[in-house]
Design a protein around this nucleic acid. Structure first.
Length: 1134
RNA sequence: GCUGAAGUGGUGGAACUGGUAGACACGCAGGACUUAAAAUCCUGUUCCCGUUAAGGGAGUGCGGGUUCGAUUCCCGCCUUCAGUACCA
């Protein structure tokens, strides 16, 4: 026995409890301490041993602590890790915490407690619970995403992403410098990059004349993490944006708050660049098929073609615009204040009303000084001019006054403001701007400036029609950044582009449908159809996201009045709008082929549009037929062809016409990367003239600053906006920008940032010069076994694969895929218990309760009862009476002297009183019992309700196992005799069984087999030392504490069990001489027949036919055939 | 709707390549020990017919098929769970 053991707990203690019944409490406590002090499971890279990396999905340390469902996966992975150690592998099995996140911050908002504090407390609680279960984690490698020596590297990876672009030619990410080289030497149009749609088409000569800032703005459109205005999922209740996978059915996944679509300037990750590799990689990894399927759906690849339909100029959009204005003037004199583009008026009116309710402080202050003609001039607020809502306007003087709040320092925002000013100028308005700060602190100055301006401007008669935007659009700069609806309406669009996966059906197109939000809607709408279209758009806007999703049956739409031309046959087809076409997918427009697509079919039927059959095999009387079978008819150049030939023929033709090309589309969008929250990694970026720049690498980590409150600022900026003196000062003592202070990015990174690379940090958790050393990455490579829930299918598991591929492209890691094999553990559901309270005549509850079996005889209501005071569905009446005061005098109608509770499977939650805490079970039965019972419950991957009912059986098993090492008065006794054949057979059966079961993650069956082995050996009255010692090793991954104790008692050195060798299986011990053949007649088993296994089938048949017992079953008939499978069965056919 | 997984005793589940369906455990019933209870141990426990027994029959969601033989393979249907949803 080692010194360390003596140091920790005395040999004396062990000796005393050796001669007692199974003392699990002391045994478990002592061994957990031993492992911790001796760092038994510390793993270092060691070239002499094969590596094996077992990882559990990163837990978020929630305040609720662990319930009995959480450790399921940890137990499985721990068994596997311990088993692999016994098999001679160098096992890395770490644990840590994904400790940034919303719940701690929500709690901080409510209580004012720093999230770091609550997080720390939660982690400690978590750790305590984990330690209770005897896991073999290497705690020397513990990590926390919220600690600065960890998030330093999260920020560092962010910087690498910012400094990279995706080269489609090499099919990998490269440093931005290689892009700059290309821009310097070739036309940008020839660069094959994944980038924004609005990149400039420029020549090297243009590039060389651009300013540094112009270049920076342009490069942002290529970087793998970038800033741009995008439509985001805004959750007002949480005060932040959410990623697509954090939104479920229009509500936030956490908390269930409503989520709306909103345009915001946001950091995004260009994950779409990796769409194809993420898809292909799925073929090379051993993951559950459903999980891979989910990722495939999420990536959503569709192979098809782009196709252009020319618009018929009847009238041309431009003429129409003019005509429209004329009509307006003629029909009713447009009043001077009716400056809004009438098409968008309805929509803007709503926004404008909204804005008036949600004015900023500065706007309120200014309005109080401007209202009621205090300046001598009539001023309106939130007035709509064409496509814009202005803050304040004086119409007779055509002066717009704007107050800037929130984000107005980013590149796009500035460009947008500039453009807005240009637009308003073009529309005949002058614009003056003030900042929030100016208005609030120097109100009088601001008001007098406005007065002076107003007095100097010439009045315009209110009956005079404002110059239309369309007329002056030529003056607008063409380098637009954020297009407004009205601006696009003025564009001269000559075609509609659609994406289709069935380009072969192009001759069956009988109309086009565009999304109601499509930018061309306004210009395509003819005056006659305007009313219809406006009404439809209005109705669509009113429908909530949920309504649109639930109501998929109703056919709705409206005709724009315009037509487009099918480039293949010149047929004129009408253009409709309908909300079944989504603005966000493809081009926001579809070619409708009613004969092949059910939605188009219903639409065509409803609006009486033609349905053209295009394949001879198509059956279209009742519904659309999407078949690809048969030969094409009514289809011009592809008549008589089959599907494949037709597709290539049409694509070739479209290319020739310049009206289309083959294209692959992905559903997956770039991932929004910013969160307007406090408790996350700060983004290592500062802004100069509205453009983002990285801070210097040696200034990492950029620490999360302290704030006074965890709420947005008054001007709506994220909580980091509250940090005092938190500005970037260039630390370089020379050069441009020296000594100046710049604004940092105020949003933080999302929850998935820290978890997208953490498995590498475990390889080298303390490294402060790299996220992990190269040689360690080269040794541990990737995760061999990853266990966790399927809820991470489209979030964490996709983002991690993306970052992994990116890090590989840059040469930092070696593997294309991070998680070789993945297992989803099933969810543990709750199993609730109910008592039935009898109601009186009025339906009011009495104080009388009736047992489940008799409840149908009374009017009752079911009440949840705490599962912890119910055992095997029998209520503990005393505890129930004590549970609540009102139950103290409760009466019970029993059956067979017991109160039986009803049961139901529900989610495990406090409110349902069905939460089972692992600590309670460890207290009662010990960790080894709980570990084995959780495995015994059923297959790991299956979801099942938790039911403590069977745990006694496992506990009894461990006691029986302990008993094998003892005589009847609990004296530790083992014998040194030669093992018998029967003992060896039992042992080798379990060796084989456990090997097979562990390798296929069938832990429940090996628990059963242990029970069988112990039952067999107990029946044999075996206490053979060599047999028992091997059994201790085999059982140790499942029940490590009891095995360590017995290992020492058997005379081995403490702590060596974890690195012992798994016993070698010898098939010879299982060989039998005889076998009781089941004898069946026509496949129905009748009896058994003991025969030597040496007999060949023919000899067996002879024996069988000579046996009177068996002949009895034949009813005197002669068998047609006798089938003998050696060592398996005998089947007689009559 | 689509995709995926799964339906076996009172319960959790086993049967791995087609070969004795219900292992193992819970629960339940009976018994032993005990003044009694708890704990422990022993026996029985798929259902139906048969007083017990001997024995017989049915049976793995439902209906069919392949096979000497099907929980396992094939076809159709039903149910439950999970994911996804107007994706062009």
């Amino acid at each position: 026995m080692s010194l360390t053991l003596n140091f920790l707990f005395s040999q004396h203690d062990i000796k005393i409890r050796a001669n007692m019944d199974y003392q699990f409490k002391q045994i478990e406590k002592d061994w957990q301490k031993f492992w911790a002090v001796n760092e038994t499971f510390k793993a270092e890279a060691d070239e002499r041993k094969p590596k094996y990396y077992v990882l559990d999905m990163f837990p978020y340390p929630s305040g609720a602590g662990l319930h009995v469902g959480h450790p399921l996966g940890y137990i499985a992975s721990d068994i596997f890790a311990r088993y692999k150690r016994l098999k001679g592998f160098n096992v890395l099995h770490p644990m840590g915490y994904d400790s940034f996140g919303l719940p701690a911050e929500q709690y901080a908002i409510q209580t004012g407690q720093h999230p770091a504090k609550t997080t720390e407390a939660n982690i400690n609680r978590y750790r305590e619970q984990l330690d209770n279960l005897g896991f073999s984690f290497d705690w020397s490698k513990e990590i926390r995403t919220s600690s600065s020596d960890y998030y330093k590297w999260t920020q560092w990876i962010f910087m690498q992403l910012f400094n990279s672009w995706y080269n489609k030619d090499t099919d990998k990410a490269e440093h931005i410098s290689t892009l700059i080289e290309k821009l310097e030497t070739m036309p940008s149009a020839e660069i094959n990059a994944v980038c924004d749609e609005d990149v400039l088409s420029i020549l090297p000569s243009d590039w060389s004349t651009m300013t540094a800032e112009e270049k920076q703005a342009e490069l942002l459109k290529y970087r793998l993490t970038y800033l741009r205005e995008s439509t985001v999922n805004w959750c007002a209740a949480l005060g932040t944006v959410l990623a697509n996978d954090e939104v479920k059915d229009g509500f936030s996944e956490r908390g269930g708050h409503p989520v709306e679509q909103k345009k915001m300037m946001q950091w995004s990750m260009r994950i779409s660049a990796y769409a194809e590799r993420l898809l292909q990689g799925l073929n090379d990894i051993d993951w559950p098929e459903p999980l891979k399927e989910m990722q495939r759906n999420w990536i959503g690849k569709s192979v098809g073609a782009m196709m252009r339909f020319s618009l018929i100029p009847n009238p041309s959009p431009k003429e129409k615009g003019a005509q429209e204005n004329k009509v307006n003037i003629e029909v009713k004199e447009k009043r001077g204040y009716e400056t809004a583009n009438s098409f968008v008026w309805d929509l803007l009116k709503e926004n404008s009303k909204e804005n008036r309710k949600n004015q900023t402080d500065a706007e309120v202050v200014l309005w109080n000084s401007l209202r009621d003609s205090q300046t001598g001039f009539k001023i309106r607020r939130q007035h709509v001019i064409e496509g814009y809502i202005t803050d304040f306007v004086c119409l007779p003087k055509r002066l717009v006054i704007e107050v800037d709040g929130g984000y107005h320092n980013s590149e796009e925002a500035i460009a947008y403001d500039k453009q807005r000013t240009e637009f308003l100028n073009a529309a005949g308005f002058e614009v003056i701007r003030f900042t929030n700060e100016q208005v609030i602190n120097h109100t009088n100055d601001v008001v007098s400036q406005i007065k002076i301006k107003l007095e100097n401007l010439q009045s315009i008669s209110t009956t005079q029609v404002a110059p239309s935007f369309s007329d002056s659009s030529q003056n607008i700069s063409t380098t637009q950044v954020a297009p407004s609806p009205s601006e696009k309406a003025g564009d001269e669009a000559s075609y509609i582009e659609v994406f289709t996966t069935r380009v072969d059906t192009a001759y069956g197109v009988s109309f086009l449908v565009i999304a109601p939000e499509h930018e061309l809607v306004a210009s395509l709408t003819t005056p006659e159809q305007k009313e219809d279209i406006d009404a439809y758009i209005f109705a669509t806007k009113k429908k909530s996201e949920l309504d649109r999703m639930s109501d998929v049956k109703t056919v709705s739409g409206a005709f724009t009045g315009s037509y487009a031309i099918n480039p293949l046959n010149g047929v004129k087809v009408p253009v409709w709008i309908a909300d079944y076409v989504l603005a966000g997918y493809g081009t926001g427009a579809v070619m409708a082929v009613p004969s092949g697509d059910q939605r188009d079919y219903l639409f065509a039927k409803h609006f009486n549009l033609p349905i053209i059959q295009i394949l001879d095999a198509q059956k279209i009387d009742k519904e659309a037929d999407p078949t690809k079978e048969g030969k094409y008819i009514n289809s011009g150049i592809i008549n008589g062809m089959g599907y494949k030939e037709a597709t290539t023929t049409i694509i070739t033709e479209l290319k020739k016409l310049g009206m289309g090309y083959g294209k692959i589309n992905y559903r997956m969008r770039d991932a929004i990367f910013g969160r307007q929250r406090y408790w996350g990694e700060p983004v290592p970026v500062y802004f100069k003239n509205g453009l983002p720049y990285l801070i210097d690498e040696n200034e990492l980590p950029l620490l999360l600053p302290e704030v006074d409150k965890y709420l947005p600022t008054e001007s709506g900026e994220p909580p980091l906006g509250r940090a005092k003196d938190w500005k970037y000062k260039n630390s370089l003592s020379f050069g441009e920008g020296w000594g100046e202070a710049y604004e940092y990015e105020l949003s933080t990174m999302p929850g998935w940032a820290g978890s997208s690379w953490y498995w590498y940090r475990y390889m080298d958790a303390k490294n402060d010069t790299a996220f992990a050393a190269q040689d360690k990455i080269a040794y541990w490579k990737d995760v061999d076994l990853y266990i966790g829930g399927s809820e991470h299918a489209t979030g964490h598991l996709l983002y991690s694969r993306f970052w992994n591929k990116f890090l590989k492209d840059l040469g930092y890691v070696t593997e294309e895929e991070p998680f070789k094999k993945l297992i989803n553990q099933g969810m543990i559901q709750g199993r609730s218990n109910f008592v039935y309270r009898i109601n009186d005549a009025e339906g009011k509850g009495t104080n009388q309760f009736v047992s489940n079996g008799l409840k149908s005889q009374y009017p009752t209501s079911a009440l949840h009862v705490d599962v912890n005071i119910v055992e095997n569905d029998i209520l503990n009446i005393e505890k129930f009476k004590a549970f609540r005061e009102e139950y103290a005098n409760a009466e019970f109608i029993l059956e067979n002297g017991k109160y039986i509770c009803g049961t139901e499977v529900e989610k495990m939650s406090k409110s349902k009183y069905n939460v089972v805490n692992p600590d309670d079970l460890v207290e009662r039965y010990g960790a080894d019992t709980l570990r084995m019972y959780e495995m015994f419950l059923g297959p790991l991957e299956q979801s099942k309700p938790w039911n403590t009912n069977g745990i006694e059986g496992v506990f009894k098993f461990l006691r029986k196992f302990w008993k094998m090492f003892h005589d009847d008065s609990w004296n530790f006794t083992v014998s040194d005799t030669e093992p018998t054949k029967a003992e060896l057979k039992s042992l080798h059966k379990i060796i084989k069984k456990v090997e097979d079961d562990v390798e296929r993650f069938s832990f429940n069956t090996s628990v059963s087999s242990f029970m069988i082995a112990v039952n067999e050996l107990t029946d044999l009255k075996s206490n053979n030392k060599s047999i028992l010692q091997d059994l201790v090793i085999i059982l140790s991954p499942y029940a490590p504490h009891i095995c360590e104790e017995l290992w020492v008692l058997l005379g081995n050195e403490a702590g060596t069990l974890s690195y012992a060798s798994f016993p070698k299986f010898n098939a010879e011990y299982l060989i039998e001489n005889e076998f009781a053949y089941p004898v069946s007649v026509n496949g129905k088993t009748k009896t058994n027949f003991l025969l030597s296994l040496a007999l060949e089938p023919a000899e067996v048949e002879k024996e069988v036919m000579a046996n009177d017992q068996i002949l009895k079953y034949l009813d005197g008939k002669t068998p047609k055939k006798v089938i003998v499978v050696k060592g398996r069965i005998i089947n007689i056919v009559i």
